[in-house]
Design a protein around this nucleic acid. Structure first.
Length: 465
DNA sequence: CTATGGCACGGATT
DNA sequence: AATCCGTGCCATAG
């Protein structure tokens, strides 16, 4: 009862704790909504305008020091620079001088999806089709699917449905192949169609996509084979083809290689919550870890509001006091969230440096429990902070943050290497043997599971290289 | 007989 | 408390 340890900051109230927990588990996109809601509902909370760094023209952190331009003072190159990035858009930082940036805020490196697609098909559009294309492209959701039906478009623009369909087909065949479809199934079918022109597509793939999507997404290949009346191996082959070549959410294809180990319809990550890159893109520089805060500016308790408190009648005073209380609580919670994220990423990047730079083979097995011990926070804190978030690596790949804790990713990639380099198909037990020579003792049965996860066929169905 | 997948159990992780 | 993961045992296919 007397072991009150004053950690540098904030005594914890229950409300405080609860809210911090909630905030911690939010992704940057969700956080944005949360903050906006809070701002709208609470007049005591204020967002002060963003300040730009004179050198790189990026919004400044609340400290007023540009976190990137002020060259980090880290002695050791091993140590990453972790900071909360106040950006609402994200680009890799570079040392460009102010002239490169006009006064207006940094413009996107990439077009947004509608523009991107429109540019591709613009040349092929007949004059009358432009409006249709524009209308369709403005009705896409984040996944690249149409949020309206072709009939509605036709009715709205007073053109035949067939014309709308024609334009839609052009859109579907533009770069994120499959955009403008109604659902994943349709998108995949278009992708198959386009792919057919370059490679041979297993004919089973069509059947799987049109009839067995639900089974495929749950990896129930056995049931799938039964349903389609095809052999296990051919189904497996086709399924592998699908996961390797197709993307059920074409709108997200934009953001790099996000294929999850085996999931076609699993969660695919769109915007990263955290970006890891080299300072100024130079590999000799230390790593920079940016934790995305979806607001440009600084959140604070409105001083005017505080002042107004003194000059008001007693009955409204209670409400205002309440607002003020809530506002400052919210800010504290947000700060704590950021603080935790920062500490977490620092340790994580230190530890998994090799994984980040050199690939999955070098992932060190690590658990959330261990991390929580090191940081002296509760396990659930880490769990919440990790779940649902995604990280963009220097290679521009986006991976789930939870992959930093994947117990078997490294073994699986080594296994893949063995199989890629094998001269004759190796059986699972032989592979298990090889792995244990490398210091990974796994059971034969486990090798089989890993194979399945990676969508690799059993030995007797593989042909030697 | 060998290689592999299914099911289920127990311990670890969340 | 719920879930995930590695593993052993057994059935089945080749």
């Amino acid at each position: 009862m007397f072991q009150v340890q004053f950690h540098t900051t904030r005594p914890a109230t229950t409300a405080h704790l609860a809210q911090t927990m909630t905030l911690l588990s939010l992704t940057s996109a969700e956080l944005q909504q949360q903050i906006e809601a809070e701002l709208a509902s609470n007049p005591a909370l204020e967002l002060v305008e963003k300040h730009h760094c004179p050198v790189c023209h990026r919004p400044l952190a609340s400290s007023g020091i540009c976190p990137i331009c002020s060259r980090p003072t880290t002695e050791s190159m091993e140590e990453p620079v972790v900071f909360i990035s106040p950006r609402d858009d994200f680009y890799t930082h570079s040392d460009r001088s102010a002239e490169d940036f006009p006064d207006e805020p940094i413009s996107p490196v990439f077009d947004d999806l509608p523009t991107y697609v429109l540019k591709q098909i613009a040349a092929d559009l007949a004059p009358g089709q432009r409006a249709i294309a524009a209308y369709l492209l403005t009705h896409l959701d984040d996944d690249g699917f149409l949020t309206t039906s072709l009939f509605e478009v036709a009715r709205y623009l007073h053109v035949p449905v067939a014309q709308v369909e024609a334009v839609r087909q052009m859109i579907q065949r533009a770069d994120p192949v499959g955009v403008g479809s109604d659902n994943p199934r349709e998108a995949l079918l278009v992708q198959l169609d386009v792919l057919q022109e370059q490679k041979t597509v297993p004919d089973l793939a069509w059947k799987i996509v049109s009839e067995g999507m639900d089974l495929l997404s749950r990896h129930q290949l056995g049931d799938l084979a039964k349903k389609l009346d095809a052999s296990q191996s051919r189904v497996q082959q086709a399924a592998r083809f699908i996961t390797e070549n197709l993307n059920p959410f074409p709108g997200r294809a934009h953001w790099g290689d996000v294929r999850q180990p085996s999931g076609a319809a699993e969660q695919v990550y769109h915007q990263p919550d955290i970006i890891i890159s080299h300072l100024n893109g130079d590999e000799n520089n230390p790593l920079v870890v940016e934790i995305i805060m979806p607001l440009a500016g600084m959140l604070r308790v409105n001083p005017m509001y505080k002042q107004a408190l003194t000059q008001t009648t007693a009955d409204t005073r209670e409400n205002m006091r309440n607002d003020l209380e809530k506002a400052s609580l919210f800010i504290k919670c947000l700060q704590q969230r950021n603080h935790t994220m920062q500490r977490m990423m620092f340790r994580l990047v230190m530890l998994q440096r090799d994984y980040i730079l050199r690939g999955e083979k070098h992932l060190k097995p690590f658990t959330r429990a261990r991390l929580s011990e090191e940081l002296e926070v509760h396990e659930s804190t880490i769990s919440r902070a990790v779940s649902g978030k995604s990280v963009q690596l220097p290679s521009r790949r986006i991976v789930p943050l939870s992959s930093f804790f994947d117990r078997s990713l490294n073994v699986r990639t080594i296994l893949k290497n063995f199989i890629n380099e094998e001269t004759r198909p190796l059986s699972d037990s032989e592979l298990a043997e090889l792995l244990s020579e490398q210091g990974f003792s796994v059971a034969r049965r486990t090798v089989a599971k890993y194979r399945a996860m990676e969508g690799i066929l059993p030995a007797h169905l593989r042909h030697a290289n």
